[in-house]
């Protein structure tokens, strides 16, 4: 199937983009990597009037490191994340996750900001944004605003991003010495979107977690931060009985939605399994 007709232009600067926002309003769509957007165009599921290509905006396409933050430009490609030493060293969870993202040719093109803006509930990167409590930098004519990852994802493919805004960067706090990460996902085939997954980030002192984020993805309309489960675990030695309690609490806390291939029972089962696996891994 071929897309509906649309117009196309390249944004030469952020302020040029803001002009275009003003001109086209909700008829405008931003084209970054295009790996999800062009699919929806090719299926005629989306019909923008104007597609604005932001690939020339070099100011938002690099990874930079400051004292306590790794800032990833929105246009950084998945392949660059995969190959970045800064990410490997300072944002280990993201490094674990990125290995599961799609396939080589998609990773060469797909962008970090694009994946977050698209907000597929089964995607890896949004889950990491939540688990790492990253800060999203959103820009518009009015200036920049920062929003916590945990406040960003609203509903299925729906985020806090306004019509006249663009994600320009994602700021990840640098991992501390005692930071622990785990990433698990279940896919039928390599590179598929997850049936269910877990992104875990925390601080471990001895055998006790001092802080913990548990994000389950592929199980609901957005990635889900399991706060109550995490509260249960933090400050307690990780024992089999704690793990069991956490698994039971998980069933209470998150509301799982089934999909075409997997029932909610299946997704909940996998989530509990990954929780157990990840916590057991920390025990060792």
């Amino acid at each position: 199937m071929k897309p509906y007709d649309f117009s196309y232009t390249r944004a030469t600067s952020l302020s040029h983009l803001y002009d275009l926002f003003d001109e086209y309003g909700d008829g405008l769509k931003i084209l970054a990597g295009g790996q999800s957007l062009i699919t929806t165009l090719n299926m005629r599921l989306s019909s923008p009037e104007m597609l604005v290509d932001i690939n020339d905006l070099s100011e938002i396409s690099s990874i930079s490191l400051t004292d306590n933050i790794v800032s990833v430009g929105a246009l950084v490609r998945h392949a660059e994340i995969q190959e970045s030493n800064d990410i490997k060293q300072h944002v280990p969870l993201l490094k674990l996750a990125i290995e599961h993202v799609a396939h080589a040719a998609i990773r060469n093109r797909g962008t970090h900001g694009g994946s977050i803006a698209f907000a597929d509930p089964a995607a890896e990167i949004p889950a990491c944004v939540l688990a790492l409590n990253a800060t999203l930098v959103l820009a518009s004519r009015e200036g920049e605003r920062r929003i916590a990852g945990s406040d960003f994802f609203k509903d299925l493919y729906d985020t806090e991003l306004r019509e006249n805004e663009i994600i320009v960067a994602i700021e990840y706090p640098i991992a501390k010495k005692n930071t622990v990460s785990a990433f698990r996902e279940f896919t039928r085939r390599k590179g598929d979107f997850a049936t269910a997954g877990l992104a875990l980030n925390g601080e471990l002192d001895g055998k006790v977690l001092q802080s913990l984020s548990l994000v389950f993805f592929g199980v609901a309309n957005t990635p889900v931060l399991a706060r109550q489960v995490a509260d249960l675990i933090v400050g307690e030695p990780i024992t089999p009985s704690l793990i069991e309690k956490a698994q039971n609490e998980l069933a209470n806390e998150i509301e799982v939605i089934g999909d075409l291939y997997s029932s909610e029972e299946m997704k909940l089962h996998l989530s509990k399994h990954f929780l157990k696996q990840a916590l057991e891994e920390l025990q060792v």
Binding site: T39, M43, R188, R189, K190, G191, D192, L260, Y261
Partner: peptide, 16 residues
């Protein structure tokens, strides 16, 4: 038909 795309209809790929 609910899974009429190549993303939803799963065929064997090299990985498995």
């Amino acid at each position: 038909l609910r899974n009429g795309t190549l993303a939803d209809y799963l065929v064997p790929m090299a990985g498995e």
